[in-house]
Design a protein around this nucleic acid. Structure first.
Lengths: 197, 197
DNA sequence: CGGACCATGTAAGCGGTTACATGATTCT
DNA sequence: AGAATCATGTAACCGCTTACATGGTCCG
């Protein structure tokens, strides 16, 4: 159900087509949420049917056309309401830690490679998130600029602070995952030395 | 697909019924993986059909019976092979951070309550995980005891070390999430003070 | 004119959730 | 006799993935 609200969040800033939204989910927002076209287009149709969006046919070139979605009052209300709800926390289901618990079954080289992949993955994400923070602080984020332009000036600090808070949390998580995997690599080396002797 | 391997992991220790496995997923293993009965029973049937398990009908009382699943050589091989594979990392999809990024839309009281729920959730999980570590180190974990009994003595340290490594990682993650949410609460107070003045 | 990009979907399938359904056993 | 527990599922639904499919526009 979060996809719906992720879409609403973007559409509070400005009207967009399915394609625009899909781009957002591949670039900027993809660092927090991801969705493929095949999920976005049908969901937009459903949201329109539910009265959260209004779809407007816009001409595009001589024969082409596109559908621009505008958030409705009901959509805004649904979004605000979701923002005030407390999320339920689903039960744990974490393949990485499941495997870690049984690492004695893996070949030592494979165990090492898997921990290195974990590190590489989080380094990559962290770099993305660090860049996002730089954009927020430097005022070079396009979508944030548009968002701020629609909000009263005294709100600006607040809006920016929450975005930074979000990415700081993701960066801290990435740091923690990297540190954990590194301690795993150290453990593997240690166990290896112990069994050699 | 991880459910299948979580089941195999448990069945490497000893044969169990669907009910036994379901109990494991509600208690000990649930801290790393969760699954309801409705998912476990059909999956066991499929695994038997695929030759990973052998189901043995066992009498239970005068009229009752139960099905005890034993891992086969093919099952053991499938598990080892999975343990040597590198997992693919799915794209980010995190409702908590999605909401955090748009926290200016929430009522201040609601924002605070949500961060507190986040903290409460991770405190609860961390307590479970801390207890698991205590059980591992104190040698009071039943399933770990059985696992060790089946492994050569020189392997014991290795097996225990990986379990502890796993839970240490989960605990560190919980600590990080708690610290993040607390910094969010501090931020809310700060913004509140700023707008009051 | 061709290639990159804009634009919008359908369809099959999978893992997981939620609710429902049934009956035997063991213990007090 | 009744409660707690053991035991095993089915069925509808939902969000998401993967693969496939089609056609227009803009720019060099």
């Amino acid at each position: 159900m979060s996809l719906r609200y992720a879409l609403l969040a973007l559409l509070t800033v400005e009207p967009m087509t399915g394609y625009d939204l899909s781009k957002q989910f591949q670039s900027s927002v993809s660092h927090v949420w991801h969705a493929p076209d095949s999920q976005i287009y049908p969901e937009l149709r459903r949201m329109e049917k539910d009265g959260l969006l209004e779809g407007v046919e816009v001409a595009w070139g001589p024969r082409g056309k596109k559908r621009e979605y505008h958030i409705t009052d009901a959509g805004l209300e649904a979004f605000r309401s979701w923002m005030n709800e407390t999320l339920s926390y689903p039960p744990e289901r974490d393949p990485v830690h499941l495997k870690a618990a049984y690492l004695e079954w893996a070949e030592p080289d494979s165990a090492r490679a898997q921990l290195e992949a974990h590190i590489a993955n989080y380094i990559e994400r962290r770099d993305d998130w660090l860049q996002k923070v730089a954009e927020i602080e430097g005022g070079t984020s396009i979508i944030l600029g548009k968002r701020l332009a629609k909000a009263p000036v005294p709100e600006h600090a607040r809006i920016q602070a929450f975005k930074k808070f979000t990415y700081d949390g993701l960066i801290a998580r990435a740091d923690q995952e990297i540190a954990w995997a590194e301690s795993g690599l150290a453990l593997l080396s240690e166990l290896n030395r112990a069994s050699d002797s």
